[in-house]
Nucleic acid binder design. Sequence first.
RNA 1: CGGGGCGUAGCGCAGUCUGGUAGCGCGCCAGUUUUGGGUACUGGAGGCCCCCGGUUCGAAUCCGGGCGUCCCGACCA
Length: 437
Amino acid sequence: MRLSSFFLPTLKETPTEAQIVSHRLMLRAGMIRQQSAGIYAWLPLGHKVLKKIEQIVREEQDAAGAQELLMPTIQSADLWKESGRYDDYGKEMLRITDRHEREMLYGPTNEEMITDIFRTFVRSYRQLPLNLYHIQWKFRDEVRPRFGVMRGREFLMKDAYSFDIDPAGARRSYQAMFLAYLRTFARMGLKAIPMRADTGPIGGDLSHEFIILAETGESGVFCDKAWLDLDVLADAPDYKDDLQPFFDKYTSIYAATDEKHDAATCPVPAERLESARGIEVGHIFNFGTKYSKPMNATVAGPNGEPVHVEMGSYGIGVSRLVAAIIEASHDDNGIIWPDAVAPFNVGLVNLKPGDAETDRVCEELYVKLRAQGVEVLYDDRDERPGVKFADMDLIGLPWHLVVGPRGLKNGVVELKRRATGEREELSEESALAKLAR
RNA sequence: CGGGGCGUAGCGCAGUCUGGUAGCGCGCCAGUUUUGGGUACUGGAGGCCCCCGGUUCGAAUCCGGGCGUCCCGACCA
């Protein structure tokens, strides 16, 4: 993509409404535009990141055996009356009346609907286990939306729902999602720590929150320093194997939010205790038959008798993750995207458009990089070098490939790693080799 | 849902107290200049001063009502 034609409305000044760093940077980097309190339009750069995150979530859900479908954002109130939540959910649920005076709602979650789909089509325990998920916009009418997309009213969420014939099966489903979540966040370059959680209004008896560490996080967390050295991707078992040992290992290492942490009873000695800030980005629940009973979702068991299915639900805040990643990865100059979620891999900076040799080398690099499968944002604008460097740092692409007459005179281009600020002068060929995927 | 703040050019703000031709910086457009970290100068475009009503010869400014938005608290992925 050529920056001269890319829709990227960056801001030099910070809008006053933005209080936290991710919100400020998302506005300044031209990623989002607020349309109403807690409701945002995603501009091209933000949209690209959102899609990258969504895709990693999708791949890990698929790998764990979940299947994607897509349910609507607007739901009928009837299903919610059946589960009893229509009255329980309160003002957070946005209620809508259609032209026929029918009660509708903009879904804050989908347990009822997925249970309805399940009970319509699944008749036998032989069709289990089953895990269905979708990635869809949700709406919760927060009293006080804030912090940009971190706590908006409209948000993109992946929610998965598991169905099993018995509690043992439900536990396996839960463990598979537990593993999938650790892998998902690790792939995004995040350190995510599962913490035992209250089950809240959704109910159930087994639940973990996944908290990623970020200096500017909303809540305080305490954990064993052992967490910091764990490499989940290297450690992860195969989904076909027994996941219990892995689950036991990861649930036994101490971690607690500050509400639950008690210095007096903490099993971790002070020198091994890490105190940090964190942001919740995922939450998983096992809630047994909470919905299958009132909504009568049964399958025929091995002896032919109907059995209420055991369910669980598993959420990841996809749009929140965009902000959470920025909270965890930025500096004074702007965003620092982890490679896996960066909107482009490389920012190619032409320091002197109009200079024949500089233009020629840039065009060549632009073509060759893309041929190598590298996503490139080519800054071909007629702007001052300072403007280009500042914008490139702000939008945080992982690699900056800087081409100017001064370097070309010596046959070199400059490659900068955004995260470390490390710069290296090298030949065009070596730069291409280094950036090859 | 309690308490507070703010709505003036795309963004950041002054002007409101004390009513009298609507301003500044950044950005944008044209030109000159500059050329490896947001350059300098010249010229220009751009405003239902949040909305409705009232007071007044005259309202961005005073009064009443509404809406939007942000912050603190309680609540939440």
